[in-house]
Amino acid sequence: MHIPDGFLDARVWAGAAVMSAGAVGYAVRRTKEVLDDRQVPVMGVMAAFIFAAQMINFPVAPGASGHLLGGALVAILMGPWTATLLMTTVYTIQALIFQDGGITTLGANILNSAVIAPWVALWGYRALKRVTGDGAAVFLSAWLSLVVAAGAAGVQLALSGTVPLGVVLPAILGWHMLIGIGEGLITGVAVRFARQNLPPALDERWV
């Protein structure tokens, strides 16, 4: 879900950029209030973790593999604002240094993966936890976060007139509903594992 340059109309990418700038700006301020600046090194290393985790591939279907995106994982373990900052960092580096995702479309990519995905994951998790129990809630919310974020990307592409909505939405949603299963499974196991092994450290510092 790295939309490249030229695939979004100026109005769409500019609009998305304004929205994500607002969200990221707010996340920066929140982080300064809630955590102190001294946590920045810890967050930086954890953003590098997301990069490294994205290198681990899982098989999806014959000839296709996927990898974890990690937005839900960090949102559930480290809070949504931290997740927004970490994912923003990851997507910006991917665009600037690795040319993965465009420069004009960076705002849209951040909106989808660093704002929408973590928040959907968190809300989904909180809402589902009481109904389905913790494990299933993590799985479902991670799955949902990926699908919703992908849907947002599809809508942006269609709004730009790049592809007709009727074509892009089923394709992008279908694919992400499938790899979302991988995201959900991996997030579920990893969250449980992390909570078992790092309980005091994780609970005290992050909201």
Binding site: V45, F58, L68, L73, L185, V189, A190, R192, L198
Partner: peptide
């Protein structure tokens, strides 16, 4: 088996990154 092994790896990587982050700090 495949998915749980990979997920464990992500979990271990998270822990290692987190403790590494603490040492860096």
């Amino acid at each position: 088996w495949t998915m749980s092994t990979l997920a464990q790896m992500v979990g271990v990587l998270f822990i290692r990154s987190y403790t590494r982050a603490d040492r860096v700090y």
